[in-house]
Write a protein that binds this DNA or RNA. Structure first.
Lengths: 371, 371
DNA sequence: CTGAAAGCGCTTACAG
DNA sequence: CTGAAAGCGCTTACAG
């Protein structure tokens, strides 16, 4: 490192350096910054001038250690930062958290997993508490988390956990979506589901996915059907994966008349595939999403989807965390509502004749977006 | 606060508490966590067990203070968190920063202004350095920033600053956009510009806006025209503001045949207004944006726009910051390229006859999106 | 109005 | 393999 870090010269100046240079004690330096009225004006100004000249700033770290608080809220994320910031769901969620931070004067620390583990990242985060997103692993982890004395609020977690948390009624929302489709007369429904966590095989589905799948089963049961009656694909949550899967379905022998996507992003991909294929939505195929991201109202046709107020979820979680930090203990589990928003992407299935015709036409490949 | 914080019992346990409970020194406790091979297996396991039982975790703050680093990158933002996270430009930018954080194992601290001031927020952020976004105020602030010993990289700043920074060639990009429009034959061009900072009146335009405006002037000059020949509106960067302004223009006596938006978000609003009004794009009116946000490729018609690689900007800024933190001093100013991406929203203006016709028709009001 | 001292919680040479 | 001691940089009673 160039310039070394010898005794009095290089390196960040400390309160001691300023005190020495100005001819006062470190106490005085501290007062100049924190309790101006403890000092004579002349003294304070002299100190501040010297501090300015030396480029001195009280170390935030030392201050925080002393104060016992950071005025930062942490968000423990289930994926890398780049992936999170590519996902509009998280952008909306973080916006809700951000509103609370803005109002309360907190900063926001985004903490991705360390060595694949969300929990390992904790010791590297200087925050007053964590909003923990989508921790879908063993309950043991949650319990461990709760025991460490840092306040936490769980979001999109496991329903059976006892830690304070915020979730939405995924199950009810999905059930309503299925009802809507069944009510319109659809019988060939395909479900665009998303990848469960890595250990789903061992532990079964968890969190929101488990609840959405339960809602799907509920809705089918009401119509006297089962999961065996629907085609279901599990793909990563991305536009292209939604698109690709729908293309495959539409090229198959018996394409669906309705597509239920368990995430709007997947639904956007579906819409794109159908448009490229020249399939009329909702005339030939209906599409339903989940989340009601901002874009859902702007697609053509506008997307019918299950609305959850993601921003409110973030706001609620951050609010609960702040309450916990302040010791206004209220370790509640909140369940925010969902509701089906019917827009323009759903309609009754086409009559059988027209359907066969369309299927034949759809053997070809649509053009891709860019030249 | 419930439960008080008496001597040995309540409150977060420290290494001392664990040492006492386990019957070892604090050194041993520290070794158990940081240098496992310094301890006999039995000792280490005993200590870890006690720590687990007490819910002890080494304090991140104390560790950071000791280590002299936080392994966190700060982003100093010009607006509140909620506003930032509503702006896709920042989402893309932060994604670039996030990629570097992911790769290097850093966390990301989002720091909004404190009491209206970006600089005031600095002492409350425990980070190893800052990416400073859109600091458009007095150069004095930048100089002050640079003097404090924290590494910084300026983004979207003032061109004349001497601090290390990353910017894009806004001027050239805008010039090309104007050229494109003029080349197509447009003479009635309206410019959707955005709000300058609060003190623009005193200090003149700064940063990217100044450069884009300069590029606009360049382009017009090439065609033998001046700023006086274009209609220009300054509005906040939001869809609705873009929409509203374009509606007003289209209802006027001589609506433009081309709209140049200095930000894609404004262009999206413009496109919405025109669709609602039943105005054909690009048949009747051409639209050009700036930024090339992801959505620009997905609008109908797809947006012609000046591309800047915002994600790369974030990546470059974070990379430069990291280099500065590591003392690989390279206080360079980088200028990333821009380039016009011609898509489907631009075409020659309609012949005069058709234009008058359209203008008459556009007196009415289009329907709004939601019922 | 100002200074010496303790302590926030940790880590790491250093000596045993 | 383990302990006593110093120090990261700050703030705040406490005494003058």
């Amino acid at each position: 490192m160039p310039g070394g870090r010898t005794g009095g010269g290089r390196g960040k100046p400390t309160a001691g350096d300023v005190a020495a240079a100005a001819g006062y004690s470190r106490t005085a330096v501290s007062f100049a910054f924190n309790s101006p009225d403890q000092l004579s004006r002349a003294t304070r100004e002299r100190i501040l001038a010297v501090a300015e000249e030396l480029g001195y700033r009280p170390s935030p770290l030392a201050r925080m250690l002393r104060a016992g608080q950071t005025r930062a809220l942490g968000v423990l994320l289930p994926q890398g930062l780049a992936a999170i910031l590519r996902n509009p769901y998280y952008t909306e969620f973080l916006r809700g958290v951000g509103e609370v931070c803005d109002r309360e004067g907190y900063t926001l620390l985004l903490t991705p997993p360390l060595r694949e583990s969300m929990l390992e990242a904790i010791p590297y985060a200087a925050v007053d508490g964590f909003v923990v997103c989508g921790l879908e692993t063993d309950r043991g982890e949650v319990a461990e988390l709760a025991r460490h004395q840092t306040p936490v609020v769980l979001v999109d977690g496991d329903p059976q956990s006892d830690a304070p948390g915020v979730d939405v009624d995924d199950r009810r929302g999905t059930r309503e979506a299925v009802r809507h489709l069944v009510g319109l007369g659809h019988r060939r429904i395909a479900v665009l589901s998303f990848d469960p966590g890595p250990d789903a095989a061992v532990r079964g589905y968890r969190g929101p996915l488990a609840r959405r799948l339960a809602g799907l089963a509920d809705g089918l049961a009401e119509a006297g059907r089962t999961m065996a009656d629907v085609e279901l694909a599990e793909v990563p949550i991305s536009r292209v994966d939604g698109e690709r899967t729908v293309r495959r379905w539409m090229a198959g022998p018996e394409p669906p008349t309705a597509i239920l996507a368990l995430s709007d992003i997947l639904a956007f991909g579906a819409l794109e595939a159908l448009r490229d294929l020249g399939v009329d939505v909702p005339g030939e195929v209906s599409v339903v999403g989940f989340d009601d991201l901002a874009e859902a109202a702007r697609t053509r046709p506008a997307l019918t989807t299950v609305r959850q107020d993601t921003e409110a979820k973030g706001r609620t979680a951050a609010g609960a965390l702040l309450a916990a930090i302040r010791g206004e203990q209220q370790p509640v589990r909140r369940l925010l509502p969902t509701r089906l928003v019917v827009r323009a992407s759903t309609a009754p299935p086409p009559p059988p004749g027209r359907r066969a015709e369309a299927a034949a036409r759809n053997r070809g490949d649509g053009p891709s977006d860019e030249p």
